[in-house]
Design a protein around this nucleic acid. Structure first.
Lengths: 113, 113
DNA sequence: TCCTTAGTTCAAAATATGTTGAACTATTGA
DNA sequence: TCAATAGTTCAACATATTTTGAACTAAGGA
């Protein structure tokens, strides 16, 4: 079973920006950016919201073309669609990720560690 | 009389992104970017919406710290807060403006000209 | 097989956002 | 002074988004 992902030309700027214009989703993206190459599953975002709520936000990110979600047993492995976003909107993701590192949700997470 | 504008540290990433995550406001920003140095007043956005509606969107852009609005007689002169945005979120505005040039509203405008 | 774990779906409720027209203010030019 | 112009404000309405809990599915381990 595989989840639906938009292809490159279906990724739209207004949609990407409005989906990223949310604290929770921005925190998720910031976290993913700090953990590229590492397998990240939904449970790791539990600081950012309830299970149900995360399911909703992660679906939004996937449907906007920002993340890729791979089904692995009972887990989902989530990653940034970095190459796709870079090719569609050069420089956008990097500038957002850099700025997002200052967000309270991510700073809190780092303080705990 | 002068309108309220947020100062640098009051400009927040989630807010900037969510305000820009809207076709009309993105078109306004794209238009402003193409006309930097030129005095732009509200009336020039009439292709993008009704007078009332533009007043609403322009207020959102100003309140988010994306634009500066100067009162000049019965007009308002609107400009991008480019330097402020560049210093707060390096690279962000440029990447958005570049990508925004493909938006239908702006392409239509160029076709007419 | 049965239980647990990981995550989804659904419907309801709460909240936020966008759009409209009518009435308004403030400035300018005749 | 008067009328026109540029834009704002307000209240109402429509629509979209977020959040929640309860019920669900599907895989994995004992």
């Amino acid at each position: 079973m595989s989840l639906p992902h938009p292809n490159l030309d279906q990724i739209s700027l207004p949609n990407v920006l409005s989906v990223l214009g949310d604290q929770t989703r921005l925190a998720i993206v910031g976290y993913l950016a700090c953990n590229e190459g590492v397998a990240v599953s939904c449970g790791q975002f539990s600081d950012f919201g309830s299970k149900t709520n995360l399911s909703y936000h992660l679906a939004k990110l996937r449907e906007a073309g920002i993340t890729h979600t791979e089904v692995a047993g009972t887990s989902r492995l989530i990653s940034l669609r970095r190459a796709d976003l870079d090719s569609r909107f050069p420089g956008l993701l990097d500038s957002i990720i850099t700025a997002a590192q200052e967000l309270p949700a991510l700073e809190r997470l780092r303080d705990e560690a």
